[in-house]
Every structure is written in C-alpha cells, then in structure tokens.
Design a protein around this nucleic acid. Structure first.
Lengths: 336, 336
DNA sequence: TTGAAAGCGCTACCAC
DNA sequence: GTGGTAGCGCTTTCAA
C-alpha cells in the first residue's frame, strides 16, 4: 500500500488541493459548495485506498484529542469498573476514547494523574476524587477543561457532580434497623472526609440521635482496609451488646462478614447486617445481606452525558449541574 | 501562566535556539556537548515557568504516543478489571498510558477497536481476543506494532501470548473429583472456540476418557449467559444422576450456584462443584466453592513486561514468547 | 557548542 | 467552487 497516505498525497494524486480534500472529509463540502462530482471522486478514492486521517496531526491543529480522562479510586473494584464500563460505552458511541487510572484514594497520585492527563490534552475529565484535590479540580475547570465529579461532591458553584443521597439513604436504612428493634447499632466506615462518607455517617448519626440510641463508630483507613477484619472483630468483642452493624462500603462489608464469621455470630439473630453498595456476593451469601444499592448505571450515564454536553457546545457557560440520585434499599435476610 | 509556552518562546526568552532547548529537555545535552551553564539556565527557566512540552506535537513528530491499547472482554468483570489494574500500574511507571475498551466477546467490536486504536497510533496492544480476529492481529503485527495476546492464544509463530495451562489444570481438578468418587461429572462452558475454553474442555474430556466415565457437556453462548441459569437447571433436572459439576468460568459458576440453589441441591453431598477462576464470592459462599485460581497478577505482569520490552528496543526481531503459567487448585468445601 | 530550517499531517484563513 | 499557504509545537539533520 502507499507507505504514507497523507491528505497531500491524495490531493496530488487527484490533482486537487489538500484543502478541498480536507473539506470533503470533514463533511463541509456542502457548506463550502464543493461540487457533488468532486466529492464523489474524493470519497471514492479515499475509500479505495482506505485512507484514515492522522488523528494526531488533527489534534495538534485543533487542540482536541477526543479523549476523556477517567480517574477512579480503584479500577479493579466492581463498583468502579462497572462505572468505567458504562462510561466507556457511551463515550465510544460519541467518538471519544477513555484513558483511566486508579488513585488508590491517594491525593498525590491523583494530582499526578491530572497533570499527566493535562499533558496529554484530554478534552475532559471524569473524576472520583480522593480528599485534598479540590484545588487541582478547580484549577482544571478554571483552565477551561470540563470536569465532572462522580460519587462524591466538592462544594464549589462551578463544579458538576453526580452523587447519591447518601445521608438520607443511610438514615432510612438505620431507621429500619431501629424499627426492627435493634438498639446498639454500629457503623463501620472509612476515616475519610469525602462527602459521600460524611453523608453516610451523618445519616447514621441522625437516625440514632432521633432515637437517643448509643453510637458505635469504627473508622478504618483506606490503606489498612486489609486489616479491617481485625478491627471489626475487636469492636464486636469489646462491645458484645452490639446487635446490628452497618458497613459503609462494599469492601468493608466483605471484611465485616469475615469478621462476623470468625466470631461465629449468627446473622441476623445475634447481629443484623446492612451494607452500602450492592454486590453479587451479598445476594449469594448465606444469609443474604441487605444493602443500599446505588444506581450505578445512572451515575455513569449522567456523568458522561453532562461531560459530553459540555464538550459538544463548549458549554462552559452553563450553570454547573449538581445531581443527587436516589438509592434503593434492598431488604434481604440479614436484617429481617 | 504564559498563554502559550512553547519551546520557541522559551528559546526566544532565553536568547537561544529551540534546538538547544529541545536537546536539553530530552537529556541530550551531554551528547550534544551543550555547556553545563546553559543547561542549568534552561532547566531553571523551564522549572520556573512550569513548562511541559506538548506531547501531541511530539507524537506527531516522533510517531510515538506512549499509549497502549488494552482490549478486554468485559472491563466490569473482576478478572479483567484486576488485570487492567496491574497493567495500568506497570505501564504508568514506564511512562505509558492505557486506553481500554471491552469487546463483549464480539469480533466485530474487536475489529472496530483495533481500527480505532490504530487511528490513534497507540504504540502497542494487549488484547484478550474473541474468536475470529486472528487475521486482524496478524496484520497488526505485520504492520510493525507489538501485540501481546492474553488469557488465550492464537496459533502463530509471530505472536506473543500469555495464558495458563488450561487443559492440565482442569484435568487435574476433574481427576480429584473422580478420585473422590464422583461418577457423573458435568461440564458447563461457553460455546466458544477460544483456546482457553477449548483447553478446559479438553482437560475434562481427557480425565473422563481415561476413566471411561460418561460426559455431560453443556455449552452456553456468551450472549445468553443471563439465561444460563435456566439451562443449568434443566440439565440437572434431566440428568439427576449428575453428582458433580465443573463450571468453566467465574460467571458461569455464579449462574450455576443460583441454579443449584433453585433446585435445592446440597453441595457437596448431592453435587460437588468446582469452578474455573477464583472469586471472592466462592470463598465466602456457603459452602465455600473449590476453584482453579489463575495467577492474575502474573498474567498481567508478563503481558505488560513483554510489551514494554518490545516497545523499548523496537524489539520486533526477538522471537515471540509463548508463556503458559500454572494455576492453583484451591480446595474448599464444595468438593470435599 | 549552538542554531536555522525542514518537516510530521492536518485545518482554516484568505485569495481567486 | 477551489487552491495556496501559514502555522499547531516539536525533533532532527545539517551547517556553522
């Protein structure tokens, strides 16, 4: 084949100018009133030799890369990878590619990634931010790049975010436990200032305060999630009066189940269990585990839609969208 | 800061040429015998204004994008997302970014993706190929782009691949079931010609043939995985003599457990269960499910290492590597 | 030791 | 209706 098929070669080959070829290829033939005949010729030839414009040259010229940077906490976690999948699909349909990375909830890594993506001139960002990168995100937006924050929010008028009503969801779930007669309800969470975790905690506190019940809060740090089993075991041993536990994330829930199993506690007789996030494991576990399921697909769809909208119409002027989706409580055996 | 910091601005600002700046920035100062003093000046200035070279312009010039295309079956499946994570980490350390997409095991989609990635000038590919894209992969390699095939293999002298010893692993696992006294062992798999599935099937057949036991093979198509529960239920009902089932992938295993639960069969008393791939669910299930665990991290590491090696030293000349890693049988309660 | 200049392939302004 | 041409920002030959 032609070693280097450039628009210039084609132009030369066809005895016309590169400009014309470019217009035809970019669908601006009509607008530029290029004759149908010529358009046909160009398109046929291009088709024939299987020419594809060089996207890098185009990017250099236009400043657009048709790439979206996706920054998640951990791409191997099913919650995030499911989000990633939906985002990718939708982006793909719209001619965008996704490059991704995991932050491991580490702000330094997140900053590095943002830098990196900026280097790469990604057109827009979808970020699930760790604590402490608010400034970087605001800078990014100030620099004119659209950013959508997902799963948590950052208090700033200019930032689009999509999240769920964490506080209310947990509040309702805890209330159910209380109504079912539980009096000593523990809450196992991450020691994080992220909005979604704060919201979940607030929901717990709100429910317990309303009923004047004692609070048992255990915070685990993200880095030590692996050792969270130990912490949970110890909590349950020290406070044998605990008769229900709420786990604030899916992986904490899994650790919790391991801990409970180790202690040989009967769910739900001795201990009710409810977890944030659904997970196949919770459905299949014996007994099945009640949970607050997030509308993962909707979260992803909203995020990519908003980003695409901003990307399309350079829509930086439009007011930031703050979306809070409802969750769904799934009642299973563990909280009967 | 400066609206457009280009290498030219810097050169102008410093009263030297862009060439010199470029050399300094690319660490070729020594080689080009640029004075230490000048190097210092340039580096300081660059540091000061926080200049970063435009990677797109560089790509256009050099033909390298420092991007790797990753094509998996389904990024939301934990097996693939875990692989994706390890690959991303390693790539990142080496200055490469990953763009990913899921094929849904669909060859047309896979072809599209390859095309897309070619458009984007990715430097190399890691592909988990569906059936029927051998030709495209060979073309890619012929065109000089390194490709590593993962999880399955494609018979071609020029292709690097990393896989596990599927046949032997399954053979050994089935033998264990036979030794434990099971006589009617079913095998639930995908109706796929992919090497890894063929290997697993072959392992099953080999073991049963050696012991002259009857074979019960159920093939489900990837698109109908959702309805696989029905098929499995029906199989177990039609053949009540079945006293063990092997599931050839993690998601088939999950469907299988649902089917077995629906039929109220006792594991392992009435039915032994073994599954290919480990999964948190299998460990936590009651009873816990025996499985053949793949060395996921090693698979990923090998793939990215081989690709990086080819990328570094334009190592297209080196002989293709064919790596087959061992799996690990994890004995749990379901096959006692 | 350093610099001028030629592109990489494309788009878009402006001219005819 | 169509074409010339100037860059986008960088690397790299060649010359000085």
């Amino acid at each position: 084949m032609g070693k280097k098929t450039s628009i210039n070669n084609i132009a030369k080959e066809l005895g016309i100018s590169a400009t014309t070829v470019s217009f035809v290829l970019n669908g601006r033939a009509e607008e530029k009133r290029i004759s149908d005949k010529l358009v046909k010729i160009v398109l046929n030839y291009v088709e024939e030799i299987g020419y594809k414009p060089n996207s890098i040259a185009r990017s250099l010229r236009t400043g657009k890369t048709n790439t979206i940077g996706l920054i998640v906490e951990d791409i191997s976690d099913v919650f995030f990878s499911t989000i990633a999948k939906h985002i990718e699909e939708k982006a793909y349909e719209n001619g965008y590619r996704i490059i991704y990375s995991s932050t491991e909830d580490n702000p330094a890594k997140a900053k590095e990634l943002i830098d990196m993506y900026r280097d790469r001139h990604v057109d827009g960002y979808i970020i699930i931010p760790p604590d402490g990168i608010d400034k970087e995100i605001k800078d990014l937006i100030a620099s004119g790049k659209p950013v959508v924050v997902l799963d948590r929010y950052i208090e700033d008028a200019s930032i689009d975010y999509i999240t769920v009503n964490n506080q209310e969801s947990v509040y309702e779930a805890i209330k159910k436990l209380i109504e079912a007669g539980r009096k000593n309800i523990a809450f196992v969470t991450l020691n994080s200032l992220q909005s979604q975790m704060m919201g979940r905690l607030a929901g717990y506190e709100q429910a317990l305060e309303e009923h004047s019940l004692p609070q048992y809060i255990k915070e685990v740090s993200y880095e030590n999630v692996d050792s969270s089993i130990k912490h949970i075991v110890s909590l349950l041993q020290r406070k044998p009066e605990i008769d229900a536990v709420f786990f604030a994330t899916n992986y904490l829930g899994v650790s919790g189940l391991k801990a409970i199993r180790e202690l040989n506690l009967k769910i739900p007789e001795q201990l009710s269990v409810v977890c944030f996030d659904d997970y196949e494991l919770f459905e299949m576990y014996t007994p099945s585990i009640s949970c607050i399921a997030q509308p993962i697909e909707e979260l992803a769809e909203n995020a990519i839609n908003i980003l695409l909208a901003r990307l399309k119409k350079g829509g930086m002027e439009k007011k930031a969208q703050k979306i809070m989706l409802p969750t769904k409580f799934i009642q299973r055996e563990s909280s009967l």
